[in-house]
């Protein structure tokens, strides 16, 4: 047993261990860039690149997305007006008065929202503003409360696209009912995320993810061709995940995520208001929609949350390449056939 032999043995064992450890660690490492914005849509927005591009290229793309999100945030803001533009806040303020001249983009958004209202049998309706305003005030009060049914029913008389005059050629909007108002909350983030995605796609950008407060829109795949893995929280145990989904080149939007709740007298209510009952929708713990178009996913996630599973499934099945996942309060899962969730 010479010293040389001993050294050889040590070397061999060390090499063996090194190989073992190396084989267990992940070899695929793409440099991920990400930038977070806090100023849009009252939520956290994040743009991430898994494209393996340079810092400079990423920042250029992120800045372009930020600018676009800022534009849509201003357009769709119903609580603030901005100098130099008429937005939805202006339109709501002028309800019952003169027609308001708006940006062509806002007209397009309203027309899309109207289509989505029809598609979802009115379950996703941005003209529900009068009702949602009552809920917004009730949630935001020092001691949150439930609005009275009389108030809600009164407000519901000022709901519907019949109250909205859309003049496409003159680019004007006018609410004919002075108590009516528009609330794009169920659609705005998804719509803006899709616009941002389309802008990146038009510049041949791929391998990016735009995440607007849980409205995820991913473009292409990661640089190595692999999908993104999205975890859907277990609503009964928010520290855990119920499932994970592999997604690429599509959007994933979840309604009823556990943060979006408020509590009155110990009872938890989701933020989403069912147009039929005028009360928070309580049919599911969460509903996720997976499809390419983020605006459609956002609209459907809200609508499905307010519909029965059967009606929701019928709606989703009538559309091409739309998948959905329903999680009930007891934790049970239902999902459309083509979806292949990883159940944890």
């Amino acid at each position: 047993m010479s010293l040389r032999f001993r050294r050889a043995v040590i070397l061999a064992v060390l090499l063996f261990l090194t190989f073992l450890i190396a084989s267990c660690s992940k070899t695929k490492e793409i440099a991920v860039h990400s930038e977070v914005f806090y100023s849009y849509f009252d939520t956290v927005s994040e743009i991430s690149s898994y494209a393996g591009d340079s810092d400079a290229v990423f920042h250029e793309n992120a800045a372009a997305v930020s600018e676009l999100l800022d534009h849509w945030h201003r357009m769709l803001d119903i609580y603030h007006e901005y100098e130099g533009i008429n937005n939805l806040c202006t339109v709501n303020k002028c309800a019952g008065g003169e027609a308001v001249k708006v940006d062509r983009d806002l007209i397009d958004f309203i027309l899309y929202a109207k289509d989505m209202c029809v598609l979802t049998y009115g379950e996703m309706d941005i003209s529900l503003g009068a009702v949602l305003r009552l809920w917004h005030d009730a949630r935001g009060a020092d001691v949150p409360y439930l609005p009275s049914m009389e108030e809600l029913e009164e407000a519901s008389r000022h709901v519907g696209f019949d109250n909205l005059e859309i003049d496409v050629s003159a680019c004007t909007l006018r609410l004919t009912d002075s108590s009516a108002s528009l609330d794009p909350g169920a659609l705005g983030k998804g719509y803006a995320a899709e616009k941002a995605a389309q802008m990146l796609i038009s510049q041949n950008v791929t391998g990016y993810v735009i995440n607007l407060g849980g409205n995820i829109r991913c473009i292409g795949t990661k640089a190595d061709g692999s999908p993104w893995i999205t975890g859907i929280r277990d609503p009964g145990n928010p520290e855990k995940l119920a499932v994970t989904l592999k997604i690429s080149d599509c959007s994933c939007v979840t309604s009823g995520g556990y943060e979006r709740y408020f509590t009155v007298d110990g009872t938890r209510y989701p933020h989403i208001i069912d147009k039929d009952t005028l009360m928070p929708a309580t049919g599911f713990a969460s509903v996720s929609v997976i499809c390419k178009d983020s605006a459609l996913a956002d609209a459907l996630a809200t609508a499905l949350f307010c519909m029965s599973y059967e009606d929701g499934l019928a709606l989703v099945s009538s559309l091409d390449n739309v998948q959905a996942l329903w999680i009930s309060d007891d934790g049970s899962l239902r999902y459309t056939k083509e979806l292949a969730p990883v159940i944890l």
Binding site: V209, I216, W228, I229, T230, I232, V253
Partner: peptide, 10 residues
């Protein structure tokens, strides 16, 4: 054996 690394949580 699968890779359970999650990129996003909803």
């Amino acid at each position: 054996g699968g890779d359970s690394l999650v990129d996003f949580v909803l």
